Amino acid sequence: MQENHLDFYKRLGHAIALQFGSGCEVVIHDLKAKDPDHSIVWIENGHVTGRKLGDGPSHVVLEALHAGAGAKLEDRLSYLTKTASGKILKSSTVFIRDSEGEISGIFAINFDITMLRAVQGTIQWLCGVEPTAPKEPEPIVRNIADLLDDLLEQSVELVGTPVALMSKDDKVRAIRYLNDAGAFLITKSGPKVCKYFGISKYTLYSYLDEAKAESAHEAEE
């Protein structure tokens, strides 16, 4: 990320954190960092999610990394997220672009509305989210291991069949979801995925090839 961009967003983030108080976390992810497993380069009020400087990416960050250069990703504003401890947050994600128009970072705001939702009937206007936003809060994980665990669980929910009863096609579908979500950008994710689905490294590569072929075929249609 360009230094002048980082400096500006740090000052902006500090202002937002002071404006809304200790329940408002502001975090900057550097998508151009050499080590994507440690994408957080600045954070204020990290106690909201339990994260700190040097921690790893979120779901949105992985999606952006997987999309790659030139991706036309849109900012995500006023949607719900949830921490591992059960806090409900009102979040916004803004993509930072460099002079070439490529995404170089992410500026995210996570405002703790847990207590506000307890009295939501009287302050509905403050807690409301965009009509098009997902109704279920998205999880915010504290580290890479938790993120991969969460993605694995989501892949099983998508297929709708316990791992022990999955057919080959089920596992290909689950691994396709993991690939599309950027799970394989996580360091040493392969062995964990193999163990989780009870397959060999060779089989994983084979399933990945099938999943990518299916994606390419659908894109051509």
Rank of each mutant, 00 (worst) to 15 (best):
T93S: 08
T93A: 06
V94W: 11
F95W: 05
R97W: 10
R97A: 12
D98M: 03
D98L: 03
G101V: 02
G101K: 07
E102R: 10
E102K: 12
I103W: 00
I103D: 00
S104R: 05
G105Q: 05
G105I: 02
I106G: 04
F107R: 04
A108K: 07
A108G: 06
A108N: 08
A108D: 11
I109P: 01
N110W: 02
N110G: 00
F111S: 03
F111Q: 10
F111W: 09
D112L: 13
I113N: 07
I113L: 03
I113F: 07
T114F: 00
M115Y: 09
M115G: 15
L116I: 06
R117W: 01
A118P: 02
A118K: 15
V119S: 05
V119Y: 14
Q120G: 06
Q120M: 05
G121L: 03
T122P: 00
I123A: 13
L126P: 03
L126H: 12
C127T: 13
C127N: 09
G128K: 11
E130N: 15
T132Q: 15
A133C: 10
P134N: 11
K135D: 11
E136F: 09
E136H: 10
P137R: 10
P137L: 08
E138M: 15
P139M: 04
P139Q: 11
V141C: 14
V141F: 12
N143V: 08
I144S: 15
I144G: 07
A145H: 11
A145D: 14
D146G: 14
D146Q: 15
D146I: 06
L147W: 10
L148G: 03
